[in-house]
Design a protein around this nucleic acid. Structure first.
Length: 113
DNA sequence: AAATTGACGGTTA
DNA sequence: GTAACCGCCAATT
C-alpha cells in the first residue's frame, strides 16, 4: 500500500470524525494524519473522495478560514449545522476558525499557543 | 523526463 | 486588512 493511499484513507477517517458544528483545515487534517507538509494532498483527497463514504467534506476549510473555492454551496451546508459563514465583498466566505475549529488541536498543550 | 497545476500554508512587505 | 512570494507533495500534461 503506497503512502499516498494510506494517507488518503487516514484523511477520510479523520474527516469522518469531525463533529457537527466544527471545521478543520487541510493543514490540520494533514498534520493529524501524520504528514504535516501534505496539506495539498488532503485537498486532493477530498477532491477524489467517493460520495459513497458520505464524508462531511463541507466541514473542511482552508487555514485562513476561507471556504473551499469552486464549491459555493458549502456555506449553506455549514450554516445548516450552526457554523456561521461571513460573506465578503468579493463573495468570499470565511468562518471564525478560532471559534469553530475542531478542538482536537487545542487539546495538545504547548502547540496551541 | 521537464514543466505546469492544484479543494494548501506560512511568512514577509 | 490585503498582496506577493516561497515552500511543499502528488497528479497531469
Amino acid at each position: 500500500m503506497p503512502d499516498t493511499q494510506q494517507f488518503f484513507a487516514d484523511v477520510y477517517g479523520i474527516v469522518a470524525q469531525i463533529p457537527r458544528g466544527k471545521v478543520l483545515s487541510y493543514g490540520d487534517i494533514a498534520r493529524l494524519a501524520g504528514w504535516p507538509a501534505r496539506s495539498r494532498l488532503a485537498g486532493r483527497a477530498m477532491a477524489v473522495a467517493p460520495a459513497s463514504l458520505h464524508l462531511p467534506c463541507h466541514r473542511v476549510v482552508t487555514a485562513s478560514g476561507r471556504l473551499v473555492p469552486h464549491w459555493p454551496q458549502q456555506a449553506a451546508l455549514l450554516a445548516a449545522e450552526g457554523v456561521e459563514a461571513k460573506t465578503g465583498k468579493h463573495g468570499e466566505l470565511h468562518v471564525d476558525m478560532k471559534k469553530y475549529r475542531w478542538a482536537i488541536m487545542d487539546v495538545r498543550p504547548g502547540e496551541a499557543i
